[in-house]
Simulated assay, not measured.
Amino acid sequence: MLILLPPSEGKRAAAAGEPFEYHGLSFPDLAADRSLVLAALAEASAGPDAHVVLGVGQSLAAEVAHNRTLRAEPSAPAHDVYTGVLYEALGYHGLAAAQQQRARASIVVVSALWGAVGFADRIPAYRLSMSVALPGLGKLASWWKPRLAAPLGERAAGHLVVDCRSSTYAAAFAPDPARTVSVNVFQVRGGVRKVVSHFAKHTRGELARHLLVRGGGEPGTPGELLAAAQEKWTAELVPGTARTAHRLNIVLDG
């Protein structure tokens, strides 16, 4: 099983520790690409219109400034750096040791800066979204797509891919649709299904946690994933096509 997660917008900076090392990150073939994005981000973050380029408010000026010194900033495991609703619901530090090991082995975070990182990879906190177009590189989802195809395709081979990414990050890598299930979350309000971002993120985090802690082994097919989800939620599986992944729809009561 491979669980694909998006990063969080907010990140927890490490208070101390060594800077990240390229050779310490998963998918080492991406090292040169990561260096290009890092350099482009540092240059953009130093410009007078940095907040416009990065799509953030002036209140985040300190985080933008840190983008200029990421090679020297302290690093921490990705599961500590990424925060927010999804990661709080996943609750890595509340898992048993064996479950944490399973999380580190199963989870990959698709990132605008790193391309993709393992859950235990040591990285600094940064501010960059996959929707950003960096000068010299263009929109990052499009820039990363051909570069992620081989390393992530190899990592996903032979595994069921549980895709918990938002559409912005899903655009950067498309796994084999026959073995991929994208996770959608709906809340019923007034008898109508609606997508509510907060609940979608939270439920995707809960699903990831459920798959890590449940007994009975990891799901290996879309049908087995549906059965696992139905242990906790009302859920349905929409079969995929030759070009589109299966869809797991989790329906929450209003």
Rank of each mutant, 00 (worst) to 15 (best):
M1D: 09
L2C: 11
L5N: 07
R12N: 03
A15P: 00
A16S: 14
A16N: 03
E18C: 08
E18R: 13
S35Y: 05
A46C: 13
P48D: 14
L54E: 03
V56M: 06
L60I: 08
H66S: 11
L70C: 03
A72P: 05
A72I: 01
A78I: 01
H79T: 02
D80A: 12
D80N: 01
T83F: 08
Y87G: 06
A98N: 03
Q99N: 05
V108S: 11
V108R: 15
V110E: 00
V110S: 02
L113Y: 09
G118R: 07
R122E: 12
P124D: 13
L128P: 04
P135A: 02
G136E: 13
S142V: 12
W143S: 03
P146S: 14
A149W: 09
A150K: 07
R155H: 15
Y169N: 12
Y169M: 05
A172G: 07
A172N: 03
T180F: 03
V181K: 04
S182M: 11
V185T: 10
Q187I: 14
G190Q: 08
G191H: 06
F199M: 14
K201L: 11
H202L: 14
T203K: 07
A208G: 13
E218F: 02
P219Q: 10
T221M: 00
P222W: 11
G223S: 14
L226I: 11
E231L: 14
K232A: 08
P239I: 12
T241M: 03
L248V: 04
